[in-house]
Structure formats: structure tokens, C-alpha cells
Computed example of a mutant assay.
Amino acid sequence: MSAKENSADNQTPLPRRRLRTWLRLLRVTRSTENQLREFLRVTHDTTLPRFDVMAALYREDAPMKMSDLSKMLLVSNGNASTIVNRLEKDGLVARTPVAKDRRVVNVELTPLGRTQFEEQAKGHETVVDDIFSTLDHDDLDLIRDLLRRAEAGEQA
């Protein structure tokens, strides 16, 4: 950043700078998501929401209640169910009713789903690495620390 830009930023009221920062974060997030959506569509004939559901199930590594999956993904039960229905139809996830409570359904990746997700995740990681390739360890530490501070302020 040039001295002129830094000086101009210091003249801008803090609430305005915070708003600009939020908008820049949003642009970076949307741009990154768009690149990942395109990669998943072209390379794996899938969508980012399907990838996200499979990632959550992969991380859990055990059957998971549909309601817990929805909470983890920050989506409604209906949205999660729609995606799980399609994944189940494709043989990538399996649902298992809970014997003691018919209202509860567990879901987990099938062996095919686990294999497909692992392939997708490798490419996903490569795309993210390419997108952020200009950032080194110190940059990433700084961003992580700043985002943690912002999260702490959000929760206060």
C-alpha cells in the first residue's frame, strides 16, 4: 500500500473502513466459491453444496443425525435433505433410521461416496492452494489471527 493510500485510509471514518473490509471479504469469498463451483462442476460433475455435505460426513467418520448435519452446515433440514436425497440416489450416502426414534435418521458416506469425496477433496485443496498462492505462512497467520479477533468481537 502506498503512503498516499495509507493516509487516505486514515482519514476515512473507522465504521466506513470496516464496511469496506466486509465488502472486500465478501468479494474474495464469492470469487473463491465461484472458482470452486466451476472446478467441481467441470472436473467432478458435482456441486459445492454436495461437496460440503460429503465433507461434513467425511469429517465425522460415523453415522450422523440429519439434524446435526443441518446445524453443522448452517442450512435448514429441508435443504440438507434435498442434497442427501440426491447423494443417496447416486449411491454416495446411506440413510439409516434410528430404531428407538423413527423421527431420527442417521446418514453416512458409502464406500463409493468416501472414495469420490477423497478424489474431489484433493482437487479442491489444489484449487484453494492456487487461489491463495501469493500468501505465505506469516500472511496466513496474520489473516487467521485477525479473523479470530473479528469472531470474538462478533460473539461479544
Rank of each mutant, 00 (worst) to 15 (best):
A3E: 15
A3W: 13
K4P: 03
E5Q: 12
N6P: 01
A8L: 10
A8G: 00
A8Q: 02
N10D: 12
T12F: 04
T12V: 14
P13H: 07
L14C: 03
L14D: 08
P15I: 07
P15T: 05
P15Q: 02
R18G: 12
R20G: 04
R20H: 12
T21C: 13
L23R: 13
L26P: 07
L26Q: 15
V28K: 06
V28C: 09
V28G: 02
V28N: 07
V28E: 05
R30N: 06
E33Y: 13
L36G: 01
L36K: 00
R37H: 03
R37N: 05
R37Q: 04
E38A: 00
E38R: 03
E38Q: 03
E38G: 00
E38C: 00
L40Q: 03
L40H: 02
R41K: 06
R41Y: 06
V42Q: 09
V42M: 12
H44W: 09
D45M: 04
P49D: 09
R50G: 01
D52C: 12
A56Y: 06
L57T: 00
Y58M: 10
D61M: 13
D61W: 09
A62S: 10
M64K: 02
K65I: 02
M66G: 07
L69W: 04
S70T: 01
L73A: 04
L73C: 11
S76D: 00
N77D: 14
N77W: 01
N77S: 09
G78P: 05
G78L: 08
G78H: 05
A80S: 04
A80W: 02
S81H: 08
I83G: 01
I83V: 05
V84K: 01
K89C: 04
K89E: 15
K89H: 08
G91R: 05
L92Q: 14
A94S: 14
R95H: 04
R95Y: 02
T96C: 06
T96W: 03
R102M: 07
R103W: 01
V104K: 11
V104Y: 10
V107Y: 00
V107I: 07
T110K: 06
T110C: 03
R114D: 07
R114F: 01
T115A: 03
Q116L: 10
E119Q: 05
E119L: 13
E119V: 06
Q120S: 08
T126S: 14
T126Y: 11
V128R: 11
S133I: 04
S133P: 02
D136S: 09
H137M: 09
D139S: 08
D141C: 11
D141Y: 12
I143V: 14
I143K: 02
R144E: 12
L146M: 12
L146R: 15
R149S: 02
A150N: 02
A152Y: 10
A152F: 11
G153V: 03
G153F: 14
